[in-house]
């Protein structure tokens, strides 16, 4: 694998994760538990789409095959997407949506803080921009995880159920492969081992405050680094890509 191929793959991993998570959050539009949360989730979704957009633009430039950001988002299939498995999990109830977002925000918070130091100027600039937004997201989701977990009996049970369901998708966020090896050597990529303990301790701190317990000896599902997905991604893409695939020449 060349450095260029590795960088393209790396950008897709980041952009796909942001886009698919954004698409999931956007499903709440008009269905939020109350107006302010409806707005919060769509705002959050918009930030994620913006981040995905700028990374796709860079990926297209790195690839150099005259594709653009829309081609990458709308004209690739399931087995080409490199988003993390946690991002594509179904919304479930609000507890599950918030917890999924919290785990991703915590990851992004530490990840992008490191990516700012990347020797790749474009990725560093995008990270510098994104970290400001992610800081807001994390503040919002961590307060909701705590409020729901340490809330009523009903909300506590739902948050605990959400954790039991989602926890197994958190392990592979830190998985590294040849792409990481090549780019870490170049000073471009973030060594995921370096942020894992920070992610664990922040997660534990908030889950403790939320009085919910991490499942013991949980099996960790993996696959996204090889573009192997859970049953959900195909359905997400079918909906998200239907318009540009049906009308590929449509313009705004």
């Amino acid at each position: 694998m060349t450095k260029q191929e590795a960088l393209f793959n790396y950008c897709l991993r980041l952009a796909d994760t942001s886009l698919i998570l954004a698409q999931r959050n956007a499903e709440w539009c008009g269905h939020g538990p109350f107006l302010e949360e409806d707005l919060a989730l769509t705002n959050l979704s918009l930030d994620l789409i913006g981040q995905a957009n700028s990374i796709y633009q860079y990926a297209a430039q790195v690839e150099g095959k005259a594709r653009n950001e829309d081609d990458l988002a709308y004209h690739r299939s399931e087995r080409e997407f490199l988003n993390t498995l946690i991002a594509e999990q179904s919304n479930g109830d609000y507890a599950k949506t918030i917890l999924r977002q919290f785990f991703c925000d915590t990851f992004d918070f530490y990840f992008y803080a490191e990516l700012v130091k990347s020797k790749d100027e474009t990725l560093s600039a995008i990270a510098e921009k994104s970290i400001k937004e992610i800081t807001y997201h994390l503040r919002h989701t961590s307060s909701w995880v705590e409020r729901l977990g340490d809330g009523t009996e009903e909300s506590h049970t739902r948050m605990q159920d959400a954790l039991n369901e989602i926890w197994r998708f958190t392990g592979e966020m830190f998985e590294m492969n040849e792409v990481d090896t090549i780019l870490i050597k170049e000073g471009i990529a973030v060594d995921l081992n370096s942020i894992k303990s920070k992610w664990e301790s922040k997660s534990k701190e908030i889950l403790d405050r939320a009085t919910i317990k991490i499942p013991a000896n949980a099996f960790m599902q993996r696959g996204s680094r090889e573009a192997k997905h859970t049953e959900h991604l195909g359905f997400i893409l079918a909906e998200m890509q239907s318009l540009p695939r049906a009308l590929p020449d449509a313009k705004w």
Binding site: E36, E37, L39, A40, N43, L44, L46, Y136, R139, H140
Partner: peptide
């Protein structure tokens, strides 16, 4: 503060 998120991305309510 009612919400950290408002009518546009740059505003809170």
């Amino acid at each position: 503060m009612i919400s950290q998120f408002g009518s546009t991305a740059c505003k809170a309510l």
